[in-house]
Amino acid sequence: METIINLIQIALLAALINNFVLHYFVGICPFLGVSRRVDMAVGMGCAVTFVISLAAFLSWTFTYYLLRPEAPLPAWIWKLVGGSADAKIDLSVLSYIMYIFVIASSVQFVEMYLRKFFPSLYKSFGVFLPLITTNCAILFACLEIMKQLQNPNELWGLHEALTLAVAGGIGFTIAITLMAGLREELDLCDVPKPFQGPGIALVIAGIMAMAFMGFTGMDQGVKNALSSLLH
């Protein structure tokens, strides 16, 4: 039960309180570029959520078994080739390269899979897929997972990593969809000329970020409420 409350807390933190776009500023490029129409924004959000979960799964696996300081696999191989047992092997220097290739290949994989099995879906959000490789949000999720795995006291399991990724993707979808809705309305407004385009979008994003700051502290409240319900 503790675990589920913990997961809910992680999800709330990633999706609302520390929203990827509005708090950590990752994924700004699609946030400004693909937020002119709501249906496109939703498509982009779904594509990101999908890729982010896949990349998080892969990067957690690689980090846990291969790249963190106390990872089992390199130590085992080291023993196999006759190295001394107490040698400390730390491959974390390779993690950034690993992540970017994990992301690139999961994007490729998703693209191929969609084209083959869901052509209609591919048509609706396939165009966004190549863009996602350079979407900071996905690398950011991998890096957050890495940060947790390097701290031996609070080692994250796969369930926690996946929760963070899915919730982060949902948070991104929420932010970009809200933004698209506002920008559709904005077409009917008389915006001062210099502000047209990215200027007004950023000001709106600023106001949205202020609104999202209102969620701060909500995770503690939900956690306390759930714990008192249980006891």
């Binding site: 007004i200 950023l202 600023g206």
Partner: peptide, 25 residues
Amino acid sequence: GIMVLPPGGFLVLGILLATSEWYTH
């Protein structure tokens, strides 16, 4: 305080972009 928080970044960049646009025009 808002300036060092995330919203400040969005607002300042938005206004700066508008200024640069205005100047170019």
